[in-house]
Design a protein around this nucleic acid. Structure first.
Lengths: 196, 196
DNA sequence: TATGTTCTATGGTGATTGTCATAGAACGTC
DNA sequence: GACGTTCTATGACAATCACCATAGAACATA
């Protein structure tokens, strides 16, 4: 029954890219519509909730992208230490591909979020939780203390977010490599102490 | 010889607070001037560089605040593990005091920063480097491998930034406590292996 | 072909953005 | 008191902001 234009999806993808580069307030609707090629006349037809609804979709889109990255890394790694190294490599590749301009959209929305937009804050929280769970799964693939894996996963989410930040500031993947190695060592030590 | 009004300093302090709450683009000059009580007529007298110059000063101001926090923690802690716990406690207290609305200004500027404003990006990089050095100093107060301390310090900066982020998203100090404990354990283990 | 839904073009709304020019007030110094 | 500097009040600038109303085009179904 629906006609389904691709304008909505194009806008979301473009918005996700721009938001993670300039933030929510730094990105105007005009710029999004122009770069996406989406017609400006139908914006509020596709997004009755306006810019905030678009941002919500953009967060979900960006979150899903990271989720698949984490899931793939877990799938490809047998041992916890190798898993962490794969994660770091993936993030390094990701930030380098944008010439160190595109940071984590969830992070920037978390920092910019106002109490006036609780939906966005909630979406960010959900993303972090989802990432933590995926990483905990990857850490405990070979068994081991699940509770400890979840605590480690939370630290990994935080440390990788921070590493991404430092990499952007320095315009180099070096911080990610250094921190990734440090994390891999720690995780390997901790998870080795009790296997299944 | 100069008359020296306090309008400039007031604007900087207010701007620093608002920037870390809403970001650079999310904070208007009007709001800064209104909340600081600084006269709007003299803004470009005090800040010929406009909003960007104000932002630069705000970053320096915020960075110095964190620097003194880190230095104080180093001063108060004898052992690396306790030092990390003190850091985490300080950050947790800090974010809680603002009801989880005021994040790290350096982080948000790093994420929002455009290639069009290299001065801001450079200031953020300098802040991270300064923090890393202070933390490395705190870790190696009792001797130990300095190079390793610096790598650990870089990871600590990243992880604490990430922990701050998760705490904001969750509106709770819990992530900081969990991550802080995990970090303290790791640091204590690593730095114990070779003391002076 | 007729009908109803989905999508888009056009144009404009009031509000706010950062920036600035001009003039005068407040002050220290001679 | 006169002079020169430092600071501020006022008011305006063009540009952009998010948002929306109206009307018509494009399409699917009947």
């Amino acid at each position: 029954m629906p006609r389904k234009s691709d304008a909505r999806q194009r806008a979301i993808l473009t918005a996700a890219r721009l938001f993670q580069r300039q933030g929510y307030f730094g990105t105007g609707l005009a710029q999004i519509l122009e770069q996406s090629g989406a017609p400006k006349g139908s914006f509020y037809h596709h997004f009755p909730g306006g810019k905030e609804e678009l941002a919500l979709e953009a967060i979900h889109e960006a979150s899903r992208g990271l989720e698949s990255l984490f899931a793939a890394a877990a799938e490809a790694s047998e041992e916890p230490g190798a898993f962490v190294r794969t994660l770091a490599r993936g993030i390094a590749y990701w930030i380098e591909a944008s010439d160190f301009t595109d940071g984590c959209p969830v992070a920037i929305f978390t920092l910019e979020s106002t109490p006036a937009a609780p939906a966005l804050q909630e979406a960010c929280r959900e993303s972090f939780v989802a990432w933590q769970r995926l990483i905990a799964d990857g850490l405990s693939r070979n068994g081991g203390d699940r509770a400890r894996a979840e605590r480690l996963a939370e630290m990994l989410v935080a440390a990788l977010e921070g590493a991404l930040l430092l990499a952007m500031a320095e315009a180099s993947t070096r911080p990610i490599e250094v921190i990734g190695e440090e994390l891999a060592e720690h995780v390997a030590t901790v998870m080795r102490s009790r296997g299944s």
